[in-house]
Computed example of a mutant assay.
Amino acid sequence: MSESITDSGHDTNSTFGTSHTNTSEITGTLGKINTNNKHFSYNYDDTLPKVLPSHKFRYSVWHDLRQTCLTGDQLHAPRVRAGPPEKEKQFNRVIEDGLPIHHDLSGRRRQNHMNELENWESAEVINLCYQELCHEYQWKNFYRILAKCQSAVTINISYNTIVSLKQIKFSRCEYINMHANYIGSIKDFPSLPKAKKIVATDNNIKTLDGLQSLRGTPLEELYLSGNNCSFEINYRQKVFQTLPNLRILDGVARLPSDSEFVEDETQPDNSRCTIL
């Protein structure tokens, strides 16, 4: 997408957009700020390029580049979002300093090159936050990568508008950060048989349904604040009652009051009888 710097809605003939005499000028990287004792106005520099130098890399991931030997597990925050169909049309055409920025591999050789450098299967730390996933093909590629992360012990997939991960299993994961997604239920969590710490703050979890599925894990810390479920009456007592091995909930260590028994409202009350 072409990026240009334009005057966004300023009327240069209005009071706030008019330059005055006897003003000081503060020169910045994008233009000049004209100041006086009443108003500030900003004049954009017309000499700036209409397209940023990084524009040529807008559809590229690291293993597409002509000279790279980095593997996925060596990158702290790799960009894995798949490019649109237009990417293939431009793959061999993008030039920098007279040379193509991408490699010249194709077909099976290109696929093998991608698999070798991605190496998600052996990565122990995965950080795939802020991927800005919008289209179906981007989600398909994202889930393809997650399914390969079977050696990952630490996983960060925050800020990705994820709705559900229930089809994914992270066999070795001990810590997962799913903060700021759109997950609607604990039942939509991935399978986490070895999880010790789960962060799922600021999602869309309405109830504590599905919490029982975490009972058999070594879970010690759970973070659900910012979800509707955290406002339930006796919220803390219900969580600790379901997860007796839990030590910390939402950053607060287990309190004596958290161990108070709470009736399960979902079960019928058989202690009463009706006399006709």
Rank of each mutant, 00 (worst) to 15 (best):
L52T: 03
L52Y: 03
P53V: 00
S54K: 11
S54M: 10
S54N: 13
H55S: 11
H55E: 12
H55A: 09
R58Y: 10
R58E: 11
R58P: 01
Y59A: 05
V61F: 00
H63D: 10
L65Y: 14
L65I: 07
L65V: 07
R66L: 08
Q67L: 11
Q67F: 15
Q67P: 05
T68V: 15
T68Q: 12
T68D: 12
C69G: 15
C69L: 14
L70V: 14
T71Q: 08
T71A: 04
T71C: 13
T71F: 09
T71R: 03
D73A: 10
Q74A: 04
H76A: 13
A77T: 11
R79L: 12
V80H: 00
G83H: 02
G83N: 04
P85E: 08
P85K: 08
K87D: 09
K89S: 12
K89Y: 12
K89T: 08
K89P: 01
F91E: 07
F91W: 14
F91D: 05
V94K: 03
V94C: 02
I95F: 14
E96A: 05
D97F: 04
D97C: 08
D97Y: 07
P100T: 13
I101Y: 07
I101G: 00
I101E: 04
I101C: 07
H102E: 11
H102L: 07
H103E: 08
H103F: 11
H103W: 10
D104F: 11
D104G: 08
D104W: 10
D104A: 09
L105Y: 13
L105H: 03
L105D: 07
L105V: 06
S106N: 07
G107F: 15
G107Q: 14
R108G: 05
R108Q: 15
R109T: 09
R110G: 03
Q111W: 06
Q111V: 13
N112C: 06
N112K: 09
N112V: 04
H113R: 07
H113I: 05
H113G: 05
M114D: 15
E116D: 12
E118L: 10
E118A: 05
W120E: 02
E121W: 06
E121F: 09
E121M: 08
A123Q: 04
E124Q: 15
I126P: 01
I126R: 00
N127G: 06
L128S: 05
C129N: 13
Y130S: 08
Y130F: 12
Y130G: 01
Q131R: 02
L133S: 01
L133K: 00
C134I: 14
H135P: 00
H135E: 14
H135C: 04
E136C: 06
Y137Q: 01
Y137H: 07
Q138K: 01
Q138N: 04
W139A: 02
W139F: 09
N141W: 04
N141Q: 12
F142R: 00
Y143E: 02
Y143A: 04
Y143K: 01
I145Y: 07
I145K: 06
